[in-house]
């Protein structure tokens, strides 16, 4: 009975209604395909190339692409022609502002005109101190090419850095090649680097050895659960874990080893054990009782290496 009813309904379906339904379905499916393609394309457009740096105050890529209206007012108000809008075919999301540091870096204007120009808040208006900007992060990408690592004096990146001495410092290291000179190694500090890119622009090499990358590419991060013992100790005033027990060295009679101190000690009484501030896991061996026979004079050479090299020893 039901079958007959539905068959009848299908046969008798109003052609206009049928046409309307198929047309609607056709449009919906077509537009759905377009929407899916657009969504996938959008995901790919979120991948910012390593050389493209966003203006100051830009949030992460997804948030920025939600907030940027692609009007180019930041580009217009940039006094140094640093910024440009991505054209069709560029790797950067179409119409959004960026700069490439090796072309024209950010000059870090005090009044940050690009942020002021932004009508939508895509460039965060809360950014009022340009030193707080985090456009990217400089990285010494090629220690092989950087001439400072060859022992040559350069320091151009250090000297052009607008946050001089803070964002890039020079780490003096021994020059093993000459044996008597220092290496002036540039070290970038993310605590102060704004990502302006002046170091990359100024790098004297044909291809810069120091480059600015978007933060997401350049910055590592320690696991959130991770605690550095010495920092915790400085905060708490004491170690949070039980200290290691002093190591017991298995040495011949009359020979002792003081780790981190005098090293191998011959022909002396046993030194007092190192101070143990709390909860030693094993009690120190009792000192030799008085009146007991003194250990004989060392039965081996005064040179400790002889002992170590002895056949069967160690």
């Amino acid at each position: 009975m039901h079958m007959a009813d539905s068959e009848k309904a299908q046969k008798g379906m109003d052609p206009a209604r049928r046409r309307f339904l198929t047309d609607t379905l056709r449009t919906a499916v077509g537009v759905g395909l377009v929407a899916v393609t657009l969504g996938v394309y959008q995901r790919q457009a979120r991948a910012l190339p390593a050389s493209a740096i966003r203006p100051p105050g830009a949030a992460d890529e997804q948030a920025f692409q939600a907030a940027c209206i692609r009007c180019g007012l930041c580009v217009r108000d940039c006094p140094y022609d640093t910024l440009r809008l991505a054209e069709l075919g560029d790797e950067v999301a179409l119409g959004t502002p960026y700069f490439e540091a090796r072309d024209i870096p950010c000059e870090m204007c005090d009044d940050i005109p690009c942020v002021k120009a932004c009508p939508t808040g895509a460039l965060d208006p809360a950014l009022t101190q340009i030193n707080d900007a985090r456009m990217g992060l400089a990285v010494v990408v090629d220690e092989e090419a950087c001439i400072a690592f060859q022992g040559l004096r350069c320091e151009v990146c250090f000297n052009v850095c607008p946050v001089r001495g803070k964002a890039i410092s020079l780490d003096l290291q021994h020059n093993p090649r000459s044996g008597k000179h220092a290496l002036f190694i540039p070290v970038v500090h993310s605590s102060d680097c704004t990502g302006c890119g002046k170091c990359e622009k100024a790098c004297i090499l044909d291809e810069a050895a120091i480059k600015v990358f978007p933060i997401a590419l350049a910055k590592g991060m320690l696991g959130r659960h991770y605690r550095l013992g010495w920092e915790q100790k400085a905060e708490a005033g004491e170690a949070l874990v039980t200290p290691d027990t002093p190591h017991q060295y298995n040495l011949p009679e009359g020979v002792h080893y003081e780790h981190g101190g005098r090293g191998l000690i011959l022909g002396e009484g046993r030194p007092s054990p190192p101070p143990m501030p709390q909860r030693p896991m094993a009690p120190p061996r009792p000192p030799t009782p008085p009146g007991a026979p003194q250990p004989p004079a060392a039965p081996f050479s005064a040179n400790p290496l002889d002992t170590l090299n002895r056949k069967g020893g160690l």
Binding site: V34, Y41, A45, C68, R70, G95
Partner: peptide, 18 residues
């Protein structure tokens, strides 16, 4: 409707890419 939906789902102004 689709471009508004894509904007809502992807969290980006996708239509302005094309």
């Amino acid at each position: 409707g689709a471009i508004l939906l894509v904007a809502a789902v992807t969290g980006s102004i996708a239509w302005e890419l094309v």
